[in-house]
Nucleic acid binder design. Structure first.
Lengths: 213, 213
DNA sequence: CTTGACTTAGAACGCGCGTTCGTGATATAA
DNA sequence: TTATATCACGAACGCGCGTTCTAAGTCAAG
């Protein structure tokens, strides 16, 4: 419908706006677009911008300098910055972040996109050290994205601290009456049964696992 | 050194610039910053902006309206769109994309950030179906990010099609003279030895694995 | 106290930049 | 031909917005 009604000039404008934003971090002015696309008059640029806006290729804020943004990038920009809190070792508890989380000044963090994790959660990331959790489909060097536990439901993949074994592990948790069953993610492995619920401390729920090579 | 020399006003300015850019897609003006942070004079905003620039928190383009960008976000913005080609099943070969890759119009794709994968590679993603590769630390539902194989080096994690078994699997590959050794990622599992190299077809190299829950 | 560095304030200058208007060229339809 | 729509041009208007200058209020060191 509004397909390929783009003139060569309009297509050049879109491409220039995209690269300009990539280079400078802010949109170009009408005159900058005109100079880059060999358009002598600002009104022509304005005319084509209105046309592109009507066809949905971009959005404009009237009476605002550089007040335009590409529509393709509308749903982008939703990049979540997850602080990398440290490492998770089998013999140590999970370093859960303090109450106050400083958005700025995090030198170590991981950027994820919104289709992997929910941007509204207060997430934190941990890198797995050692291969003690290899039976839980977690390898050495993997990065686990975790959310501080609020409500633990049966079947959730959680990081638990077993105080009697002094060991941290990632398992699926099931409350079976008095007993707690910790099921490895690997279906070929058997579960762990804990009769005393007090030795199981749920540190957080695992939202995602990322392995780079 | 340049640590916590930020006044409350400067911190508020940074936070406002960040949220403003998120909302509008372009940076605010000096007067917009002043109004949001209760600064009556434009020169004060200009003064603090210069200070923040000198300390490395942002970059300014002089004589340019809205000519500023946050330094933290300098390396961001590089969101890679990886097309999700389909599913990888143990009994079927990997659907490698055709030569022409259409950047636009991909309804199914995954967005990753540049610190997970290299934006310059021609990547594609596959979702693992079935738990036949559970011994390779790959679970049902996992998403593997792959790069079409160019040069396969020893130790690379690759997707191979074993024509004699009619099976696809993810293994680390090692050329040992005439013999090829396929090592599972799980160190508790033993390797597969293939004496006839013609039955091993390398489909691509695994760059990353993502598991969502 | 005085001195000097740091921060805030207000006002004015002047170009930047979106907008609008009038005009004209081209094209397809009646 | 005339009529209507689309697209392009140049000029002018006027507020937007970065810059600069002067002045003053802090605060710690001397």
């Amino acid at each position: 419908m509004s397909d390929q009604k783009l003139s060569a000039r309009q297509e050049a404008m879109l491409e220039f706006i995209d690269s300009f934003m990539q280079d400078n971090g802010y949109p170009p002015t009408i005159r900058e677009i005109g100079k880059a696309c060999d358009i002598s008059s600002t009104s022509v640029v304005n005319y084509n911008l209105n046309k592109l806006e009507r066809e949905g290729y971009l959005m404009r804020d009237r009476e605002v300098s550089r007040g335009l943004r590409l529509a393709n990038r509308a749903f982008q920009g939703s990049v979540v910055r997850v602080p990398l809190m440290g490492r998770i070792v089998a013999g140590e508890p999970v370093p859960v972040p303090d109450g106050d989380f400083s958005v700025f000044g995090d030198d170590e963090a991981i950027e994820l996109t919104s289709d992997i994790v929910d941007p509204h959660d207060d997430l934190f990331a941990l890198q797995v050290k050692g291969d003690s959790m290899v039976n839980d489909m977690i390898n050495d060097g993997d990065i686990v994205i975790m959310r501080p536990h609020r409500d633990v439901k049966n079947g959730d993949m959680v990081a638990v601290w077993l105080s009697d074994r002094e060991e941290t592990t990632l398992k699926r948790i099931y409350m079976e009456g008095e007993r707690i069953r910790l099921q490895p993610a690997n279906p070929m492995m058997g579960p762990i049964y804990v009769d005393d619920p007090s030795v199981v401390e749920v540190q957080g729920r695992v939202v995602a696992v990322i392995r780079q090579m």
